[in-house]
Design a protein around this nucleic acid. Structure first.
Lengths: 216, 216
DNA sequence: GCGTATAATGACAGTTTGTCACATGACATT
DNA sequence: AATGTCATGTGACAAACTGTCATTATACGC
């Protein structure tokens, strides 16, 4: 989390810093991104940066949290609209979120996020040592709103597992999309959505031939 | 890939270097690991290291490939034993591989692999700019040995998607296991296996209530 | 004006990485 | 034994980056 000083900054200065950070994390993956570049771009002295943020991780996840807040609400809306039908909500959410992440202004930033995010971060979607601010917020929303009669789950733990499996489909598909794009291969937004739908359908109905189908 | 010089090295020296590298990558995640530590441990001059390897990534994936070769054969055996039944083979393979990765001598190394591996690497399981040596080897084995009549897939592309979804279950579960372990929470190998089985079962038969089940 | 808390600043020490000019060794040929 | 050649060994070095800290500047209440 940014330090209090950061939030007391003049708007113009804060925006300049945020913009420079987005640019750097869009230019190269997190591991390669450097604070030196960010502060040079933003025209902010080195010491000041450390007055606002702990380190590179801190500012990175701050940027990520910004958009997570948007998408979280998209998900919750979908879940309510479909009366707690998890798979229907996920399907709608994936499509809406893909639009935001791929056609929005920070697409390159997200490309680096989804191509280079590690498992630990993907699972918890915030730095491991952070206090849980809204960590697992999506999961909590899920637990409270879903209709369990439509799922084959026997505990909250299992709902969590299922939810993560679905989120991986989403993240992996975005990674796949950006990977193709950067290698100059043809891939459309529609194809991406089809891919997500297929994988989600497997998770819902199974990718193995059903027992019933064998009764002939 | 290591440079030719590396393979011409005296056995003792090569082993010393490999051992030091394993130790470093077991000590900290890839991003944090340093070549400086490896060569200090191995007692090898800096210049020499760069005569053997391109960089940190190069030696890391060399180590990883070592064990991939083992596990690949485990998978192929399972697939043959089950006459191309993908899900049966995966189930057996997951259990066998988990034994190797968790009870073997390099468990700490794998912990860092599975906790901190990024999506790009996970998908391709080798550095992105490397020539495909045995890249996608598991996938190719799968394509040639599986019985497609037991699956709801319509193309090789879809087999690939399904296979990756399954592999993610495996990797994510190992990540989960190690995460728990490092946070001092109780988790047994049996629980890990149960988790993988549940998730794989969902993928095979569906986690949503089936259409047939609604006909009452 | 004065004093105190808050913020800004950039020089600096400590690391790390990849390179390069040079040293050393092995070995075949004369 | 002398020489030439090719592969390998070596460590000093430049470049880059990170996080800190002593010092200076600013704002604000009284």
């Amino acid at each position: 989390m940014p330090k209090p000083t950061f939030f007391r900054l003049a708007d113009e200065k804060r925006q300049r810093l945020i913009k420079a950070a987005y640019a750097e994390f869009a230019r190269v993956p997190f591991q390669t991104a450097s604070i030196s570049n960010i502060i040079r771009d933003a025209g902010i002295p080195r010491g000041s940066f450390y007055q606002y943020f702990e380190d590179k991780t801190d500012i990175f996840f701050y940027l990520l949290d910004q958009t997570r807040m948007q998408t979280t609400s998209l998900y919750e809306q979908a879940l309510r609209r479909h009366n707690g039908d998890l798979f229907a909500a996920l399907d709608e959410f994936f499509n809406a979120a893909a639009d935001v992440l791929i056609e929005g202004p920070d697409a390159e930033f997200y490309a680096n996020v989804f191509l280079y995010m590690d498992f630990q971060s993907a699972t918890h979607f915030s730095p491991s040592d952070a206090k849980p601010p809204h960590k697992k917020e999506l999961l909590r929303t899920t637990l409270s709103l879903i209709d369990r009669d439509k799922l084959v789950v026997s505990s909250d733990e299992e709902v969590g597992m299922l939810f993560r499996q679905a989120m991986w489909i989403f993240m992996q598909s975005l990674g796949h999309y950006y990977h193709r794009l950067r290698n100059g291969e043809q891939i459309s937004l529609a194809q991406l959505k089809a891919r997500m739908a297929t994988m989600l359908h497997w998770l819902q109905f199974g990718a193995g031939v059903q027992k019933e189908d064998l009764h002939d």
